[in-house]
Simulated scan of single mutants.
Amino acid sequence: MTETLYIHPETPQPRLIRQAVEVIRGGGLIAYPTDTTYALGCGIGEKNALDRLIRLRQLDKKHEFTLLCHDLSALAIYAKVDNPDYRLLKAHTPGPYTFILQGTTEVPRRLMHPKKRTIGIRVPDHAICQALLAEHGEPIMTSTCHLPNDEFPLTDPQDVRDFLDHHVDLVIDGGFCGTVETTVISLSQGEGPEVVREGAGPIDAIY
């Protein structure tokens, strides 16, 4: 049976955050709330957890994964970004955006697009996410909690517990989330921002 931790969405309990991070560091797969929808997450180098996530979501080999980051300091390690693009990221993080960038050699190949060598970078505006990342000390590999054949991602913590029981090692119940995923902006071509998916983040301020 999957463990559940009830963590306050605005003032996360440090003891429970440490428990959740122990699961991530132990190679586990977790479900947790964000500033958009619920998401699935694991350690960057945890192949078994990633394989479980891929099977759960039935993702193909071309799926582009995202690194959930505490702030933009991780950019220098995991992504290549020009100054104009950095200013754009800085203006829209933390928030409901995912930015597609060229990945560096620090990103495991299995997380990047096989041909484009790109990776998503996301800085969430959510206290539980920020507490997890601060405790973990490095980014978390993340993917929307959107199950096959479902029209919308999971947003109700009861549904998350019910549908993911025995499929993940831990569910963080942080209350209800939204149903709209992040806005995805590609900066990988060096030709300015390209809207890949319009979502929770307004796009009028991107251009």
Rank of each mutant, 00 (worst) to 15 (best):
I44K: 10
L170D: 14
E138Q: 09
K80F: 03
F99C: 11
P148A: 01
Q102S: 11
Q19Y: 01
K61R: 13
L132F: 09
Q58C: 08
D165N: 15
Q130E: 13
P84W: 09
R117D: 07
L67E: 10
D82T: 13
I203G: 12
Q189K: 12
E138S: 01
R15P: 00
P114Q: 07
L53R: 08
I140P: 01
V184M: 05
A74T: 13
S186Q: 09
N48T: 11
L132N: 10
I172D: 12
Q189H: 12
E181L: 05
Y6V: 07
I206N: 14
T118D: 05
Q189Y: 03
L5A: 08
L89H: 11
D60W: 04
F65K: 02
H8N: 15
L56A: 02
L67H: 09
R15C: 01
Q158E: 13
E106G: 00
A74V: 13
V196C: 02
E198T: 12
E191Y: 03
T2P: 14
R15D: 15
M112P: 06
D125E: 14
I30R: 08
T93V: 09
I100W: 06
A134K: 15
P148F: 04
G174M: 09
L89V: 13
H8F: 01
L147F: 08
G95P: 07
L5W: 07
L101I: 02
M1T: 07
R161A: 03
T2G: 09
L53F: 03
D71R: 04
L16Y: 12
R87K: 11
K115M: 07
L170V: 06
I119Y: 04
L59F: 11
P84G: 10
G137R: 07
P33K: 01
Q158T: 09
A39D: 09
E198P: 02
R110H: 09
Q58N: 14
D156R: 04
L133S: 08
A79Q: 06
I140F: 02
R117K: 15
I203K: 13
P124Q: 01
P157H: 07
D85W: 04
A205W: 10
A200G: 12
H63Y: 14
T142W: 00
V168P: 13
V21M: 03
H63F: 14
L53T: 11
R15Y: 03
G45C: 02
T155Y: 15
K80A: 05
G175V: 01
H166N: 03
T155A: 15
C129Y: 07
H166M: 11
T37S: 14
S143Q: 02
E135N: 06
L5F: 12
V180R: 12
I30T: 08
G137M: 03
Q19I: 03
I140H: 00
N83R: 14
L154K: 11
T182G: 02
K90D: 14
V171G: 01
D173M: 04
L75F: 10
L101Y: 08
L50T: 09
V123C: 14
H167K: 15
N83V: 12
